[in-house]
Lab assay of single mutants.
Amino acid sequence: KFGRVHERAEGPAKILAIGTATPFHWVDQSSYPDYYFRVTNSDHLVDLKEKFRRICNRTMISKRHMFLTEEILQKNPNLCSHNEPSFDVRQDILVSEIPKLGKEAVLMAIDEWAQPKSKITHLVFCTRSGVDMPGADYQLIKLLGLSPSVQRVMMYQQGCFAGGTMLRLAKDLAENNKGARVLVVCAESSAIGFRGPSEDHPDNLIAQALFGDGAAALIIGSDPKMGLERPIFEIVTTAQTFVPNGDCHLALHLREMGLTFHCTKDVPPTIAKNVESCLIKAFEPLGISDWNSIFWILHPGGNAIVDQVESTLGLEPNKLQATRNILREYGNLSSACVLFILDEIRKKSGREGLKTSGDGLDLGVLLSFGPGLTIETVVLR
Rank of each mutant, 00 (worst) to 15 (best):
L298H: 05
V124E: 02
P12E: 07
N292Q: 00
K75E: 12
F37E: 12
I297F: 06
L252D: 15
H6P: 08
T260A: 14
D307A: 03
H253P: 15
K273L: 03
G19I: 13
V309M: 04
L254H: 14
H249I: 04
A282D: 12
T69L: 01
S293I: 01
A17P: 02
Y32F: 13
S293W: 07
L101N: 07
L79S: 11
K51G: 01
P231H: 10
D111F: 06
C80T: 11
E84K: 06
I141G: 04
P23G: 05
C278I: 12
S81D: 08
E284L: 06
C337T: 13
P77R: 05
D34A: 05
Q91A: 05
L79N: 06
A282R: 15
F283E: 03
T22Y: 13
D359T: 04
E71H: 01
I93Y: 15
A322W: 02
A109L: 00
E376Y: 00
G370D: 15
I305N: 07
R53A: 06
T20N: 02
T241H: 14
D43G: 07
L361Y: 02
L367M: 13
D247Q: 04
F242H: 13
A322Y: 08
Q139R: 09
I72V: 08
L45D: 01
T260G: 12
K265C: 02
N245H: 08
G287I: 00
K273E: 08
H6G: 10
S368Y: 12
L339V: 12
V338G: 13
S349M: 11
L140W: 08
W26D: 01
S81T: 13
L107C: 13
V309P: 03
V106W: 06
G287K: 03
D290N: 04
L250F: 13
S335A: 10
T260Q: 15
K49L: 06
H25A: 05
L361W: 04
F261I: 10
S357V: 08
L366M: 13
Q321S: 03
P12F: 05
K100D: 07
N325G: 10
F283G: 05
D92N: 14
A17F: 07
I141N: 00
K281L: 12
P116K: 13
V236T: 02
N41P: 13
L333E: 07
G301S: 15
P268I: 13
T356M: 14
F295I: 11
D88L: 08
C56W: 14
I110W: 05
S31V: 02
G135R: 06
H65D: 07
R328H: 07
P23S: 11
V365K: 15
Q115P: 12
R328F: 13
K142R: 12
K319T: 05
F340V: 06
H82Q: 00
S311F: 06
G135L: 15
P12T: 04
T377M: 02
P268K: 02
L144A: 04
G353V: 05
L367P: 15
E7V: 09
D247A: 13
D362S: 00
D137L: 06
S31P: 04
V306Q: 13
C126R: 01
N292K: 12
Q29E: 04
I305E: 02
M257I: 07
R54W: 01
N83Y: 11
F37T: 07
A322C: 13
Y330V: 07
G246Y: 01
R351K: 07
P85F: 00
M66S: 08
P99A: 14
K75N: 04
V309K: 14
A21E: 05
E276I: 02
G370A: 14
R346K: 05
K348T: 00
I93A: 11
D137H: 12
L16I: 09
A282P: 02
H122R: 06
E10C: 08
Q115A: 03
Q115I: 01
L361Q: 12
I235T: 13
T260E: 11
V131Y: 07
E276W: 04
I297M: 05
K355A: 08
F242Q: 11
V306M: 13
R4I: 08
S335T: 12
I232M: 01
D266E: 01
R381M: 00
P23T: 09
K119S: 11
A239W: 06
R351G: 08
E310G: 06
L333K: 03
S357R: 05
I305D: 08
H299L: 09
T40A: 08
G353A: 12
D343R: 02
C337I: 01
S357N: 06
F52E: 14
C56A: 10
D92H: 08
T40Y: 04
V306D: 00
R90V: 13
N57I: 14
E104D: 11
C337W: 11
Y36A: 05
A109R: 06
L107E: 15
R54Q: 14
E256S: 07
V89T: 11
H299I: 00
I72D: 01
D290I: 01
K103R: 11
L298N: 11
D47A: 08
F24W: 12
T127E: 10
V106S: 14
L143R: 09
C278M: 02
